[in-house]
Computed example of a mutant assay.
Amino acid sequence: MTARVRLGVNIDHVATIRNARGGPHPDPVRAAQLAVAAGADGITAHLREDRRHISDDDIVRLVAALTVPLNLEMAATAEMLQIALAHGPHAVCIVPEKRAERTTEGGLDVLGNQAGLRAFVDRLTARGSRVSLFVEPDPDQIEASAAIGAAVVELHTGRYCYLTGDDQTAELARLAKAAALATARGLEVHAGHGLTFANVGPVAAIPQVAELNIGHFLMGEAVFVGLDFAIREMRTAIDDARPPSPAC
């Protein structure tokens, strides 16, 4: 039986546009609702320490408005932990975060910070959130993620997306090996970063991948074709790569 790959839509950059001018428009919560209507299985929002896009109020309103799971991306800080514990989202994805970066660059060093991250995993899990760790497709990081009790790893696909030719093929193989190892260790496998219509297929075809989280590309395409169409096209691209079983 082939499981349907879930599509999580990240609505951060609707907030980026809003914040460029201030005021309430465009509203990321409205974008989230449109995404769900277009076929998104979940919504992802990254509440950064500097609040450069999603705001605290956005999280409050998303929790209240959504009828699908919310995946809260956050850094492993005391402030973000308290926010996540207060809201209890369906999922929390812990990501590395640097103030100077434009977007998330690379995966967490779980291996080098097992004790600190375990404390986050334990508290968030006790609150009822599924904890995901955003990691490179590296065996040591995956083993460490399993060892500290995470439920999910989200494999960073940025390197795959920005490579070409044989280098991209080799990185895809690395992603596939990492996904197989994670599944063997009892972790659910998600993937994301840099995925587009053109490159999503091979990642969606990896049998262990349960969910893809995509944001920036979809919001950029929506400028030209509309959010509904962009999400439906991505859903089609994913399903064409790994058609779901009629029973799934």
Results as ranks from 00 to 15, higher is better:
residue 211 E to W: 04
residue 54 I to H: 02
residue 150 A to C: 08
residue 179 A to N: 09
residue 120 F to G: 03
residue 195 L to A: 02
residue 38 A to G: 07
residue 78 A to C: 00
residue 143 E to A: 13
residue 215 G to L: 11
residue 168 Q to H: 04
residue 194 G to N: 11
residue 181 L to V: 05
residue 207 P to F: 00
residue 221 E to R: 15
residue 17 I to L: 15
residue 183 T to L: 01
residue 20 A to Q: 13
residue 102 R to I: 12
residue 32 A to H: 09
residue 156 H to M: 11
residue 63 V to E: 15
residue 171 E to L: 01
residue 21 R to A: 08
residue 10 N to V: 11
residue 196 T to D: 10
residue 186 G to V: 06
residue 46 H to R: 10
residue 88 G to Y: 03
residue 18 R to A: 02
residue 47 L to F: 06
residue 11 I to D: 02
residue 55 S to Q: 14
residue 100 A to L: 11
residue 156 H to S: 01
residue 154 E to P: 07
residue 147 A to K: 14
residue 49 E to S: 04
residue 248 C to I: 02
residue 215 G to Y: 06
residue 188 E to S: 12
residue 124 L to Y: 03
residue 138 D to A: 05
residue 225 V to T: 13
residue 38 A to C: 09
residue 164 T to G: 00
residue 20 A to V: 02
residue 148 I to M: 04
residue 145 S to M: 10
residue 62 L to V: 12
residue 227 L to G: 05
residue 101 E to Q: 11
residue 25 H to D: 14
residue 120 F to N: 03
residue 110 V to F: 03
residue 44 T to C: 07
residue 187 L to P: 05
residue 151 A to N: 12
residue 81 L to P: 09
residue 57 D to I: 12
residue 87 H to G: 03
residue 28 P to Q: 09
residue 33 Q to I: 12
residue 39 G to Q: 14
residue 23 G to H: 08
residue 231 I to Q: 05
residue 35 A to F: 06
residue 64 A to F: 03
residue 43 I to A: 06
residue 104 T to D: 08
residue 175 L to Y: 04
residue 121 V to H: 03
residue 50 D to L: 07
residue 148 I to R: 01
residue 217 F to D: 11
residue 114 Q to V: 06
residue 169 T to N: 12
residue 52 R to W: 04
residue 195 L to R: 04
residue 50 D to I: 02
residue 174 R to A: 10
residue 87 H to W: 13
residue 18 R to N: 07
residue 195 L to H: 03
residue 229 F to Q: 15
residue 34 L to I: 15
residue 230 A to G: 08
residue 174 R to E: 14
residue 71 N to C: 13
residue 113 N to Y: 07
residue 30 R to L: 12
residue 105 E to G: 00
residue 50 D to V: 01
residue 233 E to N: 08
residue 66 L to I: 08
residue 136 E to Y: 01
residue 206 I to L: 13
residue 230 A to S: 12
residue 136 E to P: 01
residue 214 I to C: 01
residue 10 N to R: 06
residue 155 L to K: 04
residue 25 H to L: 14
